[in-house]
Amino acid sequence: MKRLLLFVPSLLLAAFAFGQKAYLEDPDNFDPTQPTKILVDIKQCDCQRLLGAPEVFLWTWEPAELPASDPNNNGSWTSSNPALAMTNEGDDVWSFTFTPTDFYGVGADAVYSTGFSFLVKAKDGSGLGGGGCDEDKTENLSIKPELPEVPVLVVAGFPSNLLPQDVFTLVYDNSQEEKVSMQNLSADEVYCYASAFVDSVEYEVTPFFQVPNNAALQMQSSGDGTFTLMFIPEQFFTNVPTGSTITSMRFVVRKKVYLGTADQVDDPLLVPVGCP
């Protein structure tokens, strides 16, 4: 009985994986900037005229439709571009391996945003004509890659890269705080120790134990458990000597009333400033 209980879910999972029309070979490790294999199982498609076909071609229009001048363009409907010939994996399963960002000439964000839209066709897709399943093609297919899981950061900075003249937002998500002594902080309770580095020399805005005396270091509650502090580094770190360039910033989120390390987050946030 135990074996049967294990066997049934496994069978269901296998059926799901093999019952798809179009899928990524390794969806869990998908990276749009790395070689990726997409597979199409003609047997699962609604249009079946390509069953047993000796060769098939990819015909794609998303994330980008490539112009005729591009070596990866689709070609014409009656004569596909040989560069888009798919590989026979056997049993009417066909694959195409490519690096999405290079192939389409787009950024990774565009790949995640639209996913892949395509169909599979014979070199001459005309078939009986008239569109639909009477042509030598599958119906329109799509694959939408899942965004990679991003670890939840309790303290984070936005944007990822910045210059000293840009607006910076420090975000503290108290609702994700795992340190019990720092949980459920009230709207007026969160402050931040901040310092800037010019190479290895550190310039603090206010000494750690005087932070609550500086209203500019109080983080603002957004009302949903998050607290933010926004500033322009060049204007915020007033004690950085004129003509010096800030190379990084360091933040420690803490409570207004500080009795010991229980009243601060465990890890300071270090933010590089300048071109990566």
Partner: peptide, 12 residues
């Protein structure tokens, strides 16, 4: 402000 380095072009 759009973060052009993030995959999703995160905006604040």
């Amino acid at each position: 402000q759009q973060d052009d380095v993030s995959f999703t072009l995160e905006t604040r």
